[in-house]
Simulated scan of single mutants.
Amino acid sequence: MHATRLALITLSVSLLAGCATTSYPLGMDEDEWARLSPEQQLDARQQQAELDQAERARRAEAARLAAEQEQLEQDRREARLRDAGPGEVVHCVLQDAEGYLGGDWRTADPVGFAVLRGDTKTIEIREKDRSTRRVQAEAHYNGAQVELCRPNRNTCTTLAATQNQLQRGVERHIDLERVARGTLYCDTPTHRTKTRHRTSD
């Protein structure tokens, strides 16, 4: 009985070791692993499997909470957009544009977006007739300026205007290094209204 059990343990350890020939459980090095008996090796593998399962569960829960938080933020933005007063939201369209895509400037589809005062909106500039090729920019609005920036960088291009000008609509040529260039048109509604332009995904 003992010999059969020992043989099964040895076989199990061999099979498990075959799946991870260059790593050992519980942070052990090769010498530490070699000093263990087959029974101890099997126990260590089982402990590692339990730890791995717990880590997968932790990551899944973290992903769920992050998705939930993202949805809450999206709901908050949509509520603010619906209830925004004069000057609280700017609507923009980037047209006659090129995006820096695949290492070169290429014709891009027009893209519309809405940005709340003090908020940041990530937009995607997509190649015309090839929407899978895209580049991102971040749009900011502070009530007097609309900025398009390279994500995680300090490089921005700015459309500056007074509130009166924005109410009438302002158009500027913009050139954001290695991201996009074209004509940016922005305006602010003078009354509460829903977003008028197609927003980026």
Score class of each variant (00 low, 15 high):
His2Leu: 12
Ala3Pro: 00
Ser12Trp: 07
Ser12Lys: 10
Ser12Asp: 12
Val13Gly: 08
Ser14Gly: 04
Leu16Ala: 14
Ala17Arg: 15
Ala17Asn: 12
Gly18Pro: 07
Cys19Lys: 14
Ala20Leu: 04
Ser23Phe: 01
Tyr24Thr: 06
Tyr24Trp: 15
Gly27Arg: 02
Asp29Ala: 04
Glu30Pro: 00
Trp33Val: 03
Arg35Gly: 11
Arg35Cys: 08
Ser37Glu: 08
Glu39Trp: 09
Glu39Cys: 02
Gln41Leu: 03
Leu42Ile: 01
Asp43Leu: 13
Arg45Asn: 08
Ala49Val: 01
Ala49His: 05
Glu50Asp: 15
Glu50Ala: 14
Gln53Met: 06
Glu55Ser: 04
Ala60Asn: 05
Glu61Pro: 00
Ala62Pro: 00
Ala63Trp: 01
Arg64Ser: 11
Leu65Lys: 10
Leu65Cys: 02
Ala67His: 00
Gln71Thr: 10
Leu72Thr: 10
Leu72Met: 10
Leu72Ala: 14
Ala79Asp: 07
Leu81Arg: 15
Asp83Arg: 15
Pro86Ser: 10
Pro86Trp: 08
Gly87Lys: 04
Val89Lys: 12
Val90Pro: 02
Val90Cys: 06
His91Met: 06
Cys92Met: 06
Cys92Gly: 07
Val93Gly: 05
Val93Ser: 09
Ala97Asp: 08
Ala97Glu: 04
Gly102Gln: 14
Gly103Ile: 11
Trp105Gln: 10
Ala108Asn: 12
Asp109Thr: 12
Pro110Ser: 11
Val111Met: 02
Gly112Val: 08
Ala114Arg: 10
Val115Gly: 09
Val115Leu: 10
Arg117Trp: 00
Gly118Gln: 03
Thr122His: 13
Arg126Ile: 01
Asp129Trp: 05
Asp129Asn: 14
Thr132Val: 12
Gln136Asn: 15
Glu138Leu: 05
Ala139Glu: 07
His140Trp: 05
His140Asp: 11
Asn142Lys: 05
Gln145Ile: 01
Val146Ile: 08
Pro151Leu: 03
Asn152Ile: 03
Asn154Val: 13
Thr158His: 04
Thr158Asn: 02
Gln163Thr: 11
Asn164Ala: 14
Gln165Tyr: 05
Arg168Pro: 04
Arg168Lys: 10
Val170Asp: 04
Glu171Asn: 13
Arg172Tyr: 03
Glu177Met: 02
Glu177Val: 00
Glu177Gly: 00
Thr183Ile: 06
Tyr185Trp: 10
Cys186Trp: 01
Asp187Ile: 01
Thr188Val: 10
Thr195Tyr: 00
Ser200Phe: 06
Asp201Gln: 13
Asp201His: 13
